[in-house]
Design a protein around this nucleic acid. Structure first.
Length: 423
RNA sequence: CGGGGUGUGGUGUAACGGCUAACAUUCCUGUUUUGGGAACAGGCGACUUCGAGUUCGAAUCUCGACACCCCGACCA
């Protein structure tokens, strides 16, 4: 994309009503626009990032048998009454409205009921299972207090996958696969070394659920981690344990055989996987007949990731004093091509390089604006694309391009052919 | 929902109860510049969140509403 056509502009000043680092940087760099507290629009650059995160998740979900679908943003009263979750006394932060024809609808709040209700129509035999449908959708929560920029909003975009299994071992098998898939996702999103699989409360059907917690002071969660495991992230030995404060106590430590010093750390819950058991399949009468014709209740699991929160987390932990630093796989563009000077030869060289990149399928943001170098570099650093190519009168004199990584201070002058080997 | 704080051009700030609400930035025009947010000159842009009240006079004081931020509670 030519930057001259990108209508968003960067800002030097941080908006006075944002204190969180993620929102400040994302607004300054032109990725998001604040509509109201906890509600943000995604501008072209921001949408690019969301799409790339979405795609990583999609690939990893599909790799373990996930099937993508899309449930409606409207949720019906009847369906949620089956689990007694429609009642405002049970769930008090649901956006609901009346239909002209009478009756009520809710804006999508969560998806367990929707999936259970739909799948009831299609699950009847053991041959129909297991299945792993998922979707990406907007979720609306009437939070009393949203905060931390895009990390905890009234509207957020998430992925939810639900597993429908025949028995415990089948469920566990998938659960573990999902855990691995989640590791891949957070590694690819560039936050693997600060993310820990954390034991949290599990509900009725399982002692624990697993949360993916990323160490960050902007987080809302407190986790307990052994000193020797700090710094290991997702490479941590699976036999060792990190625990959410909500269940951490001496009895639990004894139960799990946790010894040594555990330290308290703030963290952001970037994902969770949860065994639901029959909590939803029972009220929805979600059963299948086994080989002997006997009815069995389906076992469910849920697997969620908030995409906006993940994006915010990446900004929180990877940015520096100059701006955002996107990991390769979630960056809005693969390369930031910056042209300096407007001599016809320079212009032609840069235009050609841009076309070459496009032809090779390398997504580039081409800064073709007639601005001074300092301003362009400042923008480039703020936007945070991992690789920067500079084409100027100087570089073309040697028939070369200057390449600099966002995370490094030094640049090198190399041939175009050499530069393209970065991809 | 409890507690605290803040609302002034697009953005960031200033202004004792008193003249045409100031400065910076953004934006527009022009000249000179051109490898780390350039310099100079000129210009556009705000009935100071909204509504009442006090006062000769309100951005400024009082009350209310709304919005936003922070702490806490809550968070499938």
């Amino acid at each position: 994309m030519r930057q001259s056509q990108l209508f968003t502009k960067t800002r030097k000043d941080v908006p006075s009503d944002e204190t969180s680092k993620n929102a400040q940087l994302l607004i300054r760099a032109g990725f998001i626009h604040k509509e109201m507290a906890g509600v943000y629009s995604y501008l072209p650059l921001g949408l690019k990032v969301i799409k790339r995160i979405e795609n990583i998740i999609r690939e990893e979900m599909n790799a373990i048998g996930g099937i993508e679908m899309k449930t409606s943003a409207f949720q019906s009263r009847e369906v949620w009454e089956k689990t007694n979750r429609w009642d405002d006394n049970i769930v008090d932060n649901w956006f609901k409205t009346k239909l002209k024809s009478g009756g009520e609808v809710g804006l999508s709040f969560t998806n367990e009921e929707a999936y259970s209700n739909i799948l009831r129509q299609y699950i009847s035999s053991y041959k129909d299972l297991p299945i792993y449908p998922y979707d990406f959708k907007e979720i609306f929560r009437n939070e009393v207090r949203s905060k931390s920029g895009i990390m905890r909003g009234r509207e957020f975009y998430w992925k939810a996958l639900y597993s429908f299994s025949r028995n415990e071992s089948e469920h566990l098998d998938f659960y573990n696969k999902a855990k691995e898939a989640y590791k891949n996702i957070f590694n690819r999103a560039g936050i693997g070394d600060k993310t820990y699989i954390t034991y949290a409360s599990g509900g009725t059907f399982s002692k624990f659920s697993h949360e993916f917690q990323t160490l960050c002071d902007a987080g809302e969660d407190i986790i307990y981690i052994s000193k020797e495991d700090e710094g290991k992230g997702l490479k941590m030995d699976e036999n060792r344990v990190v625990v959410n404060k909500e269940i951490y106590n001496e009895d639990l430590k004894k139960d799990l055989g946790l010894v040594g010093d555990f330290v308290e750390r703030k963290a952001i819950e970037v994902g969770n996987i949860f065994t639901l058991g029959t909590k939803f399949s029972e009220p929805f009468d979600l059963k299948y007949k086994d080989e002997k014709g006997k009815d069995n209740v389906v076992l469910m699991g849920s697997y969620g990731i908030g995409l906006g929160r993940l994006m915010g987390t990446i900004v929180e932990i990877l940015s520096d004093d100059k701006g955002i630093v996107w990991p390769k796989e979630v960056s809005p563009f693969s390369v930031h091509l910056v042209r300096l000077g407007d001599k016809p030869e320079t212009l032609a060289f840069a235009d050609k390089l841009y076309t070459d990149l496009q032809n090779k399928g390398i997504e580039a943001l081409y800064d073709d604006r007639d601005l001074r170098a300092g301003e362009k570099f400042a923008d480039s650093d703020l936007i945070g694309i991992p690789v920067r190519f500079v084409v100027s009168d100087k570089t073309i004199a040697e028939d070369k391009v200057e390449v600099k990584m966002r995370t490094e201070n030094d640049s090198k002058l190399i041939s175009v052919g050499e530069a393209l080997k970065n991809f």
